[in-house]
Amino acid sequence: MRVYLEFAKKSFQNNVTYRMDYFAGVINAIVMIFVNICIWRAIYEEEESLEGVQFKILVTYIVLSFLMQVVYMMDEYFIESKVRSGLISSDLLKPINFRLYVFSYNVGTTIFRLLMQLTPAIIISIFLFKLLPPFSTEMFLYFSLSAILGYLVLYNLNFLVWVSSFWFYWTFSLITIKDAAVMIFSGALIPLWFLPEWLTDIIKYTPFDSIFYIPIRIYLGQIPHEEIMNSVFKQVIWALLLFAIGQLLWRAAAKKLVVQGG
């Protein structure tokens, strides 16, 4: 386990080296939040509520969504670059678990974003966008757990696309499609309560709402206390199911390994 902690540490240090990316990430998050709030303000047309949703609740939803996106950001081309360069063959010869290696690398980046980008962005959002506090301390703890599970669901979903680089020379199109699906169906871009009911009923049977929608609803106190554990259990099931599918794909990819490039 120590070697994977070192991988995470190295990833963290790599991010610290590029300090301008850190500042750019914070500024980009704040700008995107501001733009989206302005768009929704125009939609609300000076009304304080729309379809029963208060504007201040929506603002908090938007802020949390974009801040979580900052933390959830991962290296989408880490595996593809290794496959294309041929470095994947040497990685597989090392006495390490490659899946844990990729995971620890991304965790290191996530920890950096938590400490160096999320913290200042939250402070700015509290004063600039009037970010509401969590519904209660208990809900904040549930939210933290749910947010971690949301990250795991997204990571394992991403891995399914990343490992496709063993079959596709370029994965840009697949990643773009996946990102679009996540943004729309997870509630990252538009809260699911504004989507048609028939569509949200379908989304409930997919892993998408487990990524952003469930954690944020818990934060806002919109999920009844007795239903929270069911929502968290749903996230656990999706994380495990996607992991299992990823494991099957990984084994197939390892057998198929054809090094492309030098």
Rank of each mutant, 00 (worst) to 15 (best):
Q235M: 02
L157S: 14
T176K: 06
L199N: 02
D91R: 03
F34E: 05
S125W: 04
L141I: 08
N230V: 13
I124C: 02
F185D: 01
I39P: 03
R41H: 11
Y61K: 08
L93Y: 08
F243W: 10
K234W: 14
L174K: 05
V182A: 07
V163G: 02
I175W: 07
A188S: 08
W40I: 06
S164R: 02
D75F: 01
S210M: 14
V259T: 15
I126H: 06
W40Y: 13
F7M: 10
I202M: 15
I190F: 10
N36S: 11
G221W: 05
N14K: 14
F159W: 04
F55L: 09
I33K: 10
F194A: 09
F143I: 07
Y169P: 00
Y77T: 03
V63S: 12
I203K: 06
I190D: 10
V258G: 07
F172L: 08
V59C: 15
R2D: 15
L114A: 04
F212Y: 15
V102Q: 03
Y213W: 08
E6R: 00
K234P: 04
S104H: 01
I79N: 00
R217H: 09
S173Y: 10
V53R: 04
M1Q: 10
I177C: 09
P133Y: 12
F34P: 04
L50F: 12
Q235W: 04
V71T: 12
V102M: 07
F7K: 01
E227V: 02
G221K: 05
K9L: 07
I202Y: 10
V83K: 06
Y142T: 05
V161T: 07
S173E: 09
S11D: 01
F103W: 12
I175R: 11
Y151E: 07
A121T: 10
F243D: 00
L115Y: 11
N15L: 13
L257F: 07
F135V: 08
R19A: 13
I122V: 15
D91T: 06
V16I: 15
M20V: 15
I43Q: 13
G86P: 09
N230D: 07
N106A: 01
F166P: 03
V163M: 05
N156I: 00
W40V: 08
F98S: 01
W193C: 13
L241D: 01
M73S: 13
Y101T: 05
T110F: 08
E45Y: 03
P215V: 14
K10Y: 03
L157M: 15
K10E: 09
L149G: 02
I37G: 06
Q247L: 02
S164W: 00
L174P: 00
Q117D: 02
I175V: 06
E45H: 05
W193G: 09
I214Y: 09
F98Y: 12
N230L: 14
A24R: 14
A42R: 01
W193D: 13
L240A: 09
L67F: 02
I148Y: 04
L160D: 02
Y151P: 00
N14S: 05
F12T: 00
R2A: 14
V71E: 12
L257M: 13
F127E: 08
M73F: 03
L87T: 14
L157G: 04
W193L: 10
F212N: 10
K56F: 13
I211C: 04
D201R: 15
D179H: 11
